[in-house]
Amino acid sequence: MRSFSENPATIAVLDLQGGVEEHLDHLYRVGVEARAVKRVSEFESLAGLIIPGGESTCLARLLDIFHLKEAIVREFQRGLKLWGTCAGAILLARENRGDRAHLGLIDVSIARNAFGAQTESFICQARVPKVATETLPLTFIRAPKITSVGAGVDVLLTIDDYIAAAEDERVLVTVFHPELTPSLAFHRYFAKKCGLVAGHDQGDERLETAWTPTSWMQAANSP
């Protein structure tokens, strides 16, 4: 992992379990400072925090017992921007259907594992006009569904009968995994939301040709 720095232009990835390196790799490609965080002291002075995919029950338990929940809420109140993918979206939702809510920082209702077993996981393409003009590849892995959003929450993408991406001023949630695709569009979008110059022109939405499904392994090895 990159060296610890108190740089307010940093986006961190919650490093307890799940797709941590995948997000770091995308953030490096976007050109922002990025690092993994897992201790209370590391959450200060961040511009943004990504809660990655993984298992929400595991992440929720670790957040609770290691007092990271309080740290995240405290920094959120100071202006920290948040993005949850898949399990991360479950943790951020105000209502977690069939279970208790966790962080509850965005007014959406979410249903866990709403597609069934792994053989129902899928890839599709969709346009998300607010994020990119080009069609984006989307990866759903045992994904949840956002079933409704409250006032003040913008729906970014609806597919069939469910909401796949939504945001309010400070929180972004996606039930799919942009970090598992060659598209950097969502990471660039989140970097902008965090007020960071993403190092690319607004119109640059081409797929990252250098990305491969094993690119995360390089982020795992980086100093």
Binding site: D15, L16, Q17, G18, G19, V20, E21, E22, G53, G54, E55, C58, C86, A87, Q118, S121, T139, I141, R142, H177, L180, P213, W216
Partner: peptide, 9 residues
């Protein structure tokens, strides 16, 4: 990629 989501677990 599902296995990737299990990392650290």
């Amino acid at each position: 990629q599902l296995a990737q989501m299990l990392k650290g677990g």
